[in-house]
């Protein structure tokens, strides 16, 4: 069915991020296929916000995303595990002290 000389490649994959409402950051909601960014945005609007799930959309070519590897997860994430002093619950506050 593909005419000679035409690009028979499939439409690339795009990852979709939606801001659910003002005040929130964009969150990943899924992916879709589209020939280019303009159509990807429109397809994302039709697919992922048809029940008013969003006020703003990002689309990113899936191939443009660099991800940390699960193989590296010990090196990447375990060192954060003992840095409890980064969390407010690490500190004791005397009874009666407010606004801290």
């Amino acid at each position: 069915m593909t005419e000679a000389g035409a690009s028979a490649r499939e439409w690339p994959l795009w990852e979709v991020f939606v801001r659910a409402r003002r005040g929130l950051s964009h969150g990943h909601v899924g992916s879709l296929h589209a020939p280019d960014a303009a159509m990807a945005l429109r397809n994302a609007r039709d697919l992922y916000t048809r029940r008013q799930e969003g006020v703003s959309i990002w689309v990113v070519p899936a191939e443009a995303i660099s991800a940390s590897s699960p193989d590296e997860k010990d090196a990447f994430f375990d060192p954060a595990a003992d840095k409890v002093y980064r969390h407010p619950t690490f500190y004791s506050v005397p009874d009666g002290v407010e606004h801290l």
């Binding site: 439409w11 296929h33 397809n43 697919l47 048809r50």
Partner: peptide, 11 residues
């Protein structure tokens, strides 16, 4: 022609 377009045309 494509599933995404089914959704768009239905809208």
């Amino acid at each position: 022609p494509q599933l995404e377009e089914d959704v768009a045309l239905a809208n």
